[in-house]
Lab assay of single mutants.
Amino acid sequence: MSIQHFRVALIPFFAAFCLPVFAHPETLVKVKDAEDQLGARVGYIELDLNSGKILESFRPEERFPMMSTFKVLLCGAVLSRVDAGQEQLGRRIHYSQNDLVEYSPVTEKHLTDGMTVRELCSAAITMSDNTAANLLLTTIGGPKELTAFLHNMGDHVTRLDRWEPELNEAIPNDERDTTMPAAMATTLRKLLTGELLTLASRQQLIDWMEADKVAGPLLRSALPAGWFIADKSGAGERGSRGIIAALGPDGKPSRIVVIYTTGSQATMDERNRQIAEIGASLIKHW
């Protein structure tokens, strides 16, 4: 067993022997301040990774656009098919120029040779490549099948209805392509620590998230040296922004954090800054 596999296998073990965790309302004060600064709703939840206990939450059962955070769930569904012998990570998928959609920095470079399922998941999570996500959605049967996968996990809230990039439209009061912070946090925890996926697939999923290259201005910008984070960000229309993450000190994750916002007129930089400040408060009061 590799060191990384050992780390993920012992996530519940280490967490069980940690000192009790206590909620700190100071972080919620910052979440509410972010709402004021952005002029928009902000949803927040913080779960203990081992027990699933909610440590703090704000608007945990209000719907927010998922945006690209759905790509972690998508690759979880792909990995479940791999575990069941219905898919192979090494299978190569070929596609054409007509398949390319807006923001496809990886797939646009491989029109000639195609990409493997493993490479597509890596591109979808680490670079948020939209064509990679659409190609992977095709392998599982489309958005409705991802929703069905989530329902089978016990998540009857999260739903995907459309493809990239239309799913980022974020129309107010439109339930399409949305989740709730509580539902997303619980589902992410199941994917990373539950028995739904094999140990190898859980490790692969967290490795992809740990290698995320496009979430630097968010929670990662607030992390002290030595902290662990595996995350996936999302951005959408109407001032929408979000991030889902597993993080913790001492090089291992111990909490799940989900943050979503929508309806702001603020710039992307300002949305990023507010999420980073929430992260800084979380870490300060850990």
Rank of each mutant, 00 (worst) to 15 (best):
D250H: 14
D161F: 03
L199R: 12
V214N: 07
I11A: 10
M180P: 03
Y44C: 03
N134P: 00
P25I: 09
T193E: 14
I206H: 08
L28A: 10
L167N: 07
A246Q: 05
R59Q: 06
M180G: 11
I54V: 15
S221L: 10
I283N: 03
V214Y: 05
D174K: 03
D155V: 01
I283K: 05
E119F: 02
Q274K: 12
P60C: 12
E164N: 00
E35Q: 08
L146E: 02
N50C: 08
S240D: 05
S68F: 00
L223P: 02
F17G: 09
A235N: 05
Q265W: 10
G85M: 08
G226P: 07
G251T: 10
N173Y: 12
L167F: 04
N98K: 14
F228P: 01
M153N: 10
A215M: 03
L100E: 04
D155Q: 02
G251V: 07
L197D: 03
F149G: 05
G242S: 07
L223D: 02
L160H: 06
I11V: 12
G90E: 15
R255Q: 03
E56L: 08
A123V: 07
L150H: 04
V42Y: 06
I278Y: 01
I140E: 04
S51R: 07
G234K: 00
L205R: 00
M153G: 08
G216E: 07
V257I: 11
S51C: 05
I206A: 14
V101I: 12
Q37N: 15
G142C: 04
G239K: 02
A40K: 03
P12I: 14
P172G: 10
K232N: 01
L49R: 03
L10E: 04
L120I: 06
D48H: 07
A225G: 14
M184A: 07
I93A: 04
D250W: 10
L49K: 04
A222Y: 09
P217L: 09
L73M: 11
W163V: 13
Y260S: 02
N173F: 13
P12M: 14
L146N: 02
K30F: 07
V8Y: 15
I283C: 09
T186S: 13
T187C: 09
D250T: 11
F149E: 07
W227S: 02
L49M: 15
I3N: 14
L219T: 03
S221V: 11
L247A: 05
L19H: 15
R81I: 06
V42K: 00
D36S: 13
K213Y: 09
G263R: 07
L146Q: 04
G239P: 01
L160W: 02
A77K: 10
L79E: 02
G85T: 07
S68I: 00
V72R: 00
R220F: 03
G52Y: 05
S281M: 11
P12C: 13
L135E: 06
I206W: 13
Q86L: 13
A276D: 05
P217F: 07
G251A: 12
D177I: 01
L111V: 14
S240G: 12
K252Y: 12
L218I: 05
T126H: 06
M153D: 04
S254L: 10
A84M: 10
I93R: 03
A200S: 15
L73C: 08
G236M: 02
D174T: 05
T107I: 05
S281G: 08
A266T: 12
T107G: 05
Y260P: 00
G279I: 04
W163L: 11
